[in-house]
Amino acid sequence: MSVWATRAAIHIDRAACAWLIRRSVDPDAVFVFVSDPADVPDAATPFDMRGVRLGHHGPDCSFETILRHYEITDPVLWKIAQIVHEADLDDGRFHAPRGPRPRHRPARTVDDRRRRADPRRHRADLRRTVRVLPPQPATGPHPRLTIPPEPQ
């Protein structure tokens, strides 16, 4: 079992990198999510962070960097890399097609009308319906955050 570390807020590149690591690099990988790069454990391999070997380099996103570093040549993974790149960086490098733009604004909901009519009532409604949990201390990766191994 080896430990891999990345930033806590999961976005497209980080999620795709974790999938790639588990699928093609290290099937027994365990992931640690940190809010500060200084909190990366000494035994962990950091990825998708500033200044690390397996992060963004030049025009590449971290997913592409991992493919290059481990010399993975599977054309399907490289096609996925293009999708991840466009979703993460949106720099037009691969000229990904865009979906159609809406021709008009979507219909307003009853909730939209209530919010404009009386914003204080709307906030009170939200407070009654949304339960906010107190912050929990970090105790390591949650069991559901580790990705199960791919079936053989």
Score class of each variant (00 low, 15 high):
11 H>E: 09
94 F>T: 00
136 Q>G: 03
41 P>R: 04
56 H>F: 12
6 T>Y: 05
52 V>P: 00
59 P>T: 14
101 R>S: 11
104 H>D: 08
93 R>G: 15
27 P>F: 01
31 F>T: 10
105 R>K: 10
83 I>L: 12
51 G>N: 06
10 I>V: 06
24 S>T: 04
129 T>E: 11
14 R>K: 09
21 I>R: 05
98 R>D: 09
120 R>S: 11
65 T>W: 11
12 I>W: 04
145 L>M: 13
73 T>M: 06
100 P>F: 09
113 R>M: 12
53 R>V: 10
9 A>T: 13
149 P>G: 15
99 G>P: 01
8 A>P: 00
140 G>K: 06
91 D>Q: 12
50 R>E: 08
144 R>N: 04
132 V>L: 14
102 P>R: 14
16 A>T: 02
7 R>C: 06
30 V>G: 03
123 R>N: 08
141 P>Q: 04
142 H>M: 12
125 D>K: 02
23 R>F: 05
101 R>L: 12
145 L>P: 06
30 V>R: 15
85 H>Q: 15
66 I>K: 12
111 D>A: 15
137 P>A: 09
4 W>H: 01
2 S>D: 09
124 A>V: 11
152 Q>F: 09
18 A>Q: 12
120 R>L: 10
81 A>K: 14
49 M>Y: 04
84 V>R: 00
113 R>V: 11
62 S>Q: 05
75 P>A: 07
77 L>D: 11
30 V>N: 10
116 R>S: 11
96 A>L: 06
152 Q>M: 12
106 P>G: 10
42 D>I: 04
82 Q>K: 15
89 L>N: 03
75 P>L: 13
58 G>E: 08
22 R>M: 08
142 H>E: 12
55 G>E: 07
148 P>T: 09
84 V>E: 00
22 R>S: 10
137 P>H: 01
55 G>V: 12
62 S>C: 09
53 R>F: 01
56 H>N: 14
130 V>F: 09
22 R>I: 01
39 D>E: 06
64 E>T: 14
36 D>T: 00
7 R>N: 01
17 C>T: 01
45 T>W: 00
103 R>N: 02
45 T>N: 08
110 V>P: 10
107 A>V: 13
64 E>W: 14
59 P>Q: 10
6 T>M: 02
104 H>S: 12
2 S>W: 04
151 P>W: 11
75 P>Q: 10
67 L>T: 07
134 P>H: 09
144 R>W: 06
122 H>C: 13
12 I>L: 03
44 A>L: 03
87 A>W: 00
121 R>G: 02
30 V>F: 03
43 A>D: 14
120 R>T: 05
139 T>N: 03
143 P>Q: 10
39 D>N: 04
133 L>F: 13
5 A>F: 07
124 A>D: 15
1 M>N: 10
147 I>H: 13
23 R>M: 08
99 G>A: 08
45 T>S: 00
39 D>Y: 06
70 Y>L: 05
46 P>A: 07
140 G>W: 14
17 C>K: 05
139 T>D: 08
103 R>A: 10
146 T>D: 05
102 P>Q: 03
21 I>C: 08
48 D>E: 01
50 R>N: 05
55 G>P: 04
52 V>M: 03
40 V>D: 07
28 D>P: 02
136 Q>I: 00
74 D>G: 13
137 P>R: 01
80 I>Y: 14
2 S>E: 01
144 R>S: 12
78 W>H: 15
134 P>D: 14
46 P>V: 05
72 I>C: 13
66 I>V: 03
121 R>C: 00
52 V>N: 05
